[in-house]
Computed example of a mutant assay.
Amino acid sequence: MNAYRPAGGHQPASAAFPKYCRLTKTDEFSSVFGFRKALRSRHFLLHYRLRAAEETMGARLGLVVAKRFLRRSVDRNLIRRLARENFRLLRCRLLPRDLILRLAVKPEALDRRALAEEIRSLLGKMISPEA
């Protein structure tokens, strides 16, 4: 038995972050930015676009963490890890939308808990009303 995997060998489907839940292509990012809907928090912008019924069900996430705000790759990767983890935990309750979380302002201090709570509150605004 592997210490890093549950006994079944796979994570539960609702807690995974598979490739089909990610925005990967430039035109996918462009369509979300072109929709021009966004929610703002202290450090982030959450751009979103409703998905058509014929598209895959569920929410998808894209991340933009600019080098001009965080020069060190370690810091940029921390933001990405926090965003992916919070998205992964909330994904089963999110409306079917394409989401892009973008760092909009340079954080004065990298407080993991504060940034994670900020990301969680932004994503929480996208939760379906029946969940």
Rank of each mutant, 00 (worst) to 15 (best):
F69G: 01
N86A: 07
K37S: 14
P12I: 00
L50A: 04
T26K: 10
L123E: 04
L110E: 11
M1C: 06
T26M: 09
E54F: 04
G124I: 03
V105E: 11
H47Q: 14
A59V: 09
H43T: 07
M57E: 11
Y4I: 05
L46M: 08
L61Q: 01
A131P: 06
N77L: 10
L99N: 07
C21W: 06
L110H: 04
G124M: 07
A52Y: 14
E130A: 12
R60Y: 06
R93E: 12
F17I: 05
T56I: 06
R113W: 01
Q11F: 09
P96H: 14
A59C: 06
A38W: 09
A13K: 11
L123W: 04
K106H: 10
L103M: 11
P96D: 14
K125I: 00
P6K: 02
L46T: 11
I79H: 08
L61A: 00
A83F: 15
N77K: 03
R84T: 00
A52D: 07
L101I: 15
D111K: 05
Q11T: 09
T56K: 07
A13W: 05
T26L: 06
Q11N: 05
R68G: 06
R76S: 04
A7F: 12
F87E: 00
S41Y: 06
L103P: 15
E28G: 10
C21Y: 10
L110A: 01
T56Q: 15
G8E: 07
A104P: 11
D75F: 02
R71L: 05
R88F: 15
K125A: 10
K106W: 04
I79P: 15
R5L: 13
A16H: 12
L101F: 13
L110W: 08
F29V: 02
T26G: 07
A104V: 06
A66T: 12
R97M: 15
R80E: 03
I119L: 03
A53W: 06
A15T: 08
I127A: 15
R93F: 10
K67L: 13
F33V: 11
F44Q: 13
F35K: 13
R102G: 01
L89S: 09
S14Y: 13
G34F: 07
A83I: 15
L70Q: 08
A83G: 12
A52T: 03
G58Y: 04
